[in-house]
Design a protein around this nucleic acid. Structure first.
Lengths: 233, 233
DNA sequence: AGTTTATAATTGGTCAACCAAATTGGTTAA
DNA sequence: TTAACCAATTTGGTTGACCAATTATAAACT
């Protein structure tokens, strides 16, 4: 029997978090401070006992969250924010729980409510046209009794787009897939008949068309009434 | 003189977007439909004339947005959502403009306003304690006349955490770095003196402590008054 | 001694080769 | 005919080596 070199072989995903944790310790121990250049990828990979690929993935994650900044052919540098905030953010990244569905829905409600309000004020004619096209596609699919979940999704994406807020649009783009994934298991809002849903969509479209932000908000809240109640459960 | 093999060598970033665009065309042309398994990485990299690393990065991006799903040692599959939505989302990803600062601030206002409202209702004693600690750290740094931007950041992160909404917390974690990056160039809210800011923070803390969501919302709006006006510019 | 130039070392980025797991297809035994 | 088994192929994952650009160092010249 040969000696097992990896007594508790961690999955790659865990190893990445281990690396992040190690770097976090370096910062806590003041061996690494904001603004400092951290050791080369090769050095760190050897120091932490992981391959360079895994270390690069860890740094890539840290860069995504803005905690380090990479300068090609030069080095990787710790962002110049306080060690307290740095530590807190890394802790958050480490414990990032896979989002519970309720939080997801709640956040969608928040963002989309504001999105339609903004859309009613800022939407261009072209954006309005795209919303209407998506709405008609939803109707056509719906009256045949088919499941129009895709068209519904597209409709709401177009609403977000019309908010003219690139960040809201991007965030909706990120959280939408999660909702789709969980939608099948957590059947919600499938009890109302399709004609009611079409009417609710139409109200939203009209409000945006008439540049009435308050009516748009109100219409969306009616449309999402079931979801609101779900969040309060 | 040797023939230049890459007449117009695109930057890696652009090549990734080219790949996404190509995959998008495959889907539009119905050569690839939702649920289908897409060709192996090697095949695609050869077909598109890019290295496998770049193709993997492109797929990684698509997976992040939930448009494809990878099963190790098995294959990569197109998500089962409508081609319309799929196409629209890819188009969005492609034109993802680097977020303008105004959109960023606006979104932060939306999320954090809701966050403190939720925090006032849901916060645990420990979360309240952490908020108070962060607040005191801000005070101590501030009364010395030092720039307490880091402590301010940490304070607001703790507010988001107390919302008990994992998605809001994560999103704040994503958009906060961008704000930090742009904060230096776009000097905002540096005209008010620190004692006012401390008072405003204190009001928010008190509201959350007293479980008063409306007061918390109101206090935050006062605190962000300058930012609101900035967004309306 | 000071400045410039040339050289060597270090960096992150890229890639082709390799790995183990999983699927696939055919073959064999019940 | 069916079920079980095995080998070969295909898959995404991983790795060590190489690349161009940058930086640090040393040398050489004024």
């Amino acid at each position: 029997m040969k000696t097992n070199l990896k007594p508790e072989s961690l999955s790659p995903r865990d190893e990445i978090e281990t690396v992040i944790s190690k770097i976090r310790e370096l910062i806590i121990n003041r061996q690494l401070e904001p603004g400092d250049k951290l050791p080369s990828e090769r050095t760190l990979s050897e120091k932490f006992g992981v391959s360079r690929s895994q270390l690069r993935l860890a740094i890539q994650k840290l860069e995504f969250y803005g905690l380090v900044k990479k300068y090609p052919k030069s080095g990787t540098f710790v962002s110049k924010i306080g060690v307290g905030a740095l530590n807190s953010m890394m802790a958050n990244i480490l414990h990032l729980q896979t989002p519970d569905f309720k939080s997801l829905v709640e956040t969608r409600l928040i963002l989309e409510t504001k999105a339609v309000k903004l859309a009613a004020v800022r939407r261009t004619e072209q954006q309005l046209y795209q919303i209407e096209v998506a709405h008609e596609a939803y109707i056509n699919k719906s009256i045949n009794g088919e499941n129009a979940i895709d068209e519904d999704l597209l409709f709401h994406l177009k609403l977000a787009e019309a908010s003219c807020n690139s960040v809201i649009n991007s965030l909706m783009l990120v959280i939408t897939p999660e909702i789709i994934t969980n939608f099948v298991t957590n059947k919600i809002c499938d009890k109302t008949n399709f004609s009611t849903l079409i009417k609710e969509h139409q109200d939203i479209v009209n409000a945006i068309k008439n540049n009435d932000p308050d009516q748009a908000t109100e219409s969306l809240k009616i449309h999402f009434n079931d979801l609101y109640q779900y969040c309060r459960t």
